[in-house]
Write a protein that binds this DNA or RNA. Structure first.
Lengths: 340, 340
DNA sequence: CTGAAAGCGCTTACAG
DNA sequence: CTGAAAGCGCTTACAG
């Protein structure tokens, strides 16, 4: 009695079963048989493969071909809905091109402490990385693979960069609030040193500076979370007293949700006393009441476009920067200011 | 002038550089050299590897060893925070054991339409799958790999099952609401046919049946989303009129958030007129106001425990079912009923 | 303590 | 139209 596990069938087993050579099996199953193998034998091979439940050994294929049709996707955190949606877009495009995706979630906030390539379970053909801090980039470049960056500093060393139009988004926010009549603003900024947040800060300051009477009363940095926004907005409102800002511009929807809670805990109302805006348009933006006015970033499309840019880069295609348009979702958390 | 891409160094290159054989390189870098290679040569190998920037070809290693130290994680959707957290837990444990994780996000709601193994970018050693519909299981079993199921029917064909104590969670909800004095309930159920939601429905009905005077006025099914909960709760409240339920028990936090919105749109208050409970304790539960009373499921721990169960199963370890405890997070969305 | 050799399963020239 | 052979890079007995 043998308890040997029945090992999975190889292409050699299929060949024997069909009475052909291994080369013929490879040709037929790889769909490169036309004009080289007779239809009858091709069908015999397919039947044998089906019957044996044959699945090609991908490790062997990768080794032989020197490429794996596998791409590494690096995101700061999948529990952030923005990155989860970006990942979904990338996976969708990759699947359509028969390319596999391996995910490397770098430890929350810390950046990719460990070497992503050490944990890569397959040989990799390219890398799609999002919103990384600058230092983190070095480790990625080290692999020497085609690299597409998302939501990151353009004109870097990457093969290509795909960004949402962050500057336009912040301009939409500023124009919306200025149009409603707001003049005293505070910026609840994400406590992350990356291109995307530097742009938000710079553009907001610039837009307000260009309007007489408007001013940025205060900027508070906070970790991206409801609690972070709550604490930062509380600091702003308590420190500024009666001349408090009438609009809190937040770098992220989670921060905005926290800011709304802070406003109410201080006995004020959103949006009558204080308007609040977010960024991202995550599910939470329409879960809370009032719903958030926020910049809708095309997260899914960002991942999809990034993957579309990476695939030609795998073959040595050209670099470039793509900018995707964004829109403002106007909802209940903003209104004209009341009072002085 | 050659434009040949400098191909990445192999273990043979390292061997030449260090003046040793390939076997010695393998022994040293695999840390199995003690007592077999002299310390001086070992150091020479390490230096050569460092200098050349050597990275082992994982495809070749997998092919040779017949295993890949890679596990497939199958989840319905990563944009659902519950699964993202579960995934994070699984990845954390895997990383500690030097095991790679390949993710298969089966298309939202539809179950894994395509063959997960076709898209697997590496040879796989095992599968960790969550909350799958029954039909989906078949495709997974087909791989013949060790399989650990999460949040699923126990005593199935899986190597092991790891579940949160869903029944206990629903009992906590029922006891909490009954204790507050509620007697008329509605169940906003997830529109998904899986073990976890069947248990919730069965236990809720059972608990209420055992209390004289208490009854389940109505059950409405809804897709898991804010909009789904809003629509379902609206149907319940409009259909039941003055004898409406005083408590809406929801299968999920997103449904509960939607239910809260429905209550308010009908001119009622949460929790004074209608109490609402959720399930999962996602970020959104404390983002909304009032914050949700909900069952806290240990999503991260579920993934981690599942991975810990899978690793010995890779070596043919024993099967079994593990049940993880859950707690009730009591917050502002529940209160004693008022009125008739 | 060290190295030469075999072989994992696949695909691709090459020879018939 | 078909098959025998080589080789991708690694690890592991095995022989010295």
């Amino acid at each position: 009695m043998s308890d040997a596990i029945p090992s999975r069938p190889t292409s050699r087993d299929v060949a024997q079963h069909a009475g052909v050579s291994q080369a013929t099996v490879s040709l037929v199953l790889g769909d490169r048989w036309r004009g080289r193998v007779s239809p009858a034998r091709a069908e015999a091979v397919r039947a044998a493969a089906r019957e044996l439940g044959y699945r090609p050994n991908l490790a062997a294929r990768s080794l032989r071909l020197g490429r794996s049709r596998t791409v590494l996707v690096v995101v700061p955190s999948l529990t952030n809905e923005f990155f989860a949606r970006m990942h979904a877009g990338a996976v969708r495009v990759a699947a359509g091109e028969d390319v596999g995706v391996v995910l490397y979630p770098s430890p929350e906030g810390v950046g990719p402490a460990r070497d992503p390539f050490a944990s890569a379970s397959a040989t990799l053909d390219g890398v799609l990385a999002s919103s990384m801090a600058v230092e983190a980039l070095a480790a990625l470049r080290e692999g020497g693979l085609p690299l597409v960056m998302l939501d990151s500093e353009p004109h870097g060393t990457a093969s290509a960069t795909v960004n949402p139009d962050i500057a336009a988004g912040m301009r939409l926010v500023a124009a919306h609030l200025l149009g409603l009549g707001h003049r005293r603003f505070a910026h609840i900024a994400a406590d992350v040193d990356s291109w995307t947040f530097r742009v938000r800060a710079r553009v907001l300051a610039g837009e307000l500076a260009s309007v007489p009477g408007a001013r940025l009363v205060r900027t508070e940095r906070a970790p991206i979370a409801v609690a972070g926004g709550l604490a930062a907005a509380t600091r702003v409102l308590e420190a500024t007293g009666p001349h408090r800002p009438t609009a809190l511009v937040c770098d992220d929807d989670m921060l905005a949700v926290g800011a709304c809670k802070a406003v109410r805990r201080l006995g004020l109302r959103v949006p009558e006393d204080v308007s609040v805006t977010g960024f991202d348009d995550l599910t939470v933006a329409t879960a809370v009441e009032p719903e958030l006015t926020t910049v809708a970033l095309p997260a899914e499309e960002l991942g999809a476009t990034g993957m579309r840019a990476l695939l030609p880069a795998l073959a040595g295609g050209p670099a470039g920067t793509t900018v995707l348009p964004v829109t403002l979702s106007r909802r209940g958390s903003t209104a004209p200011p009341t009072g002085p």
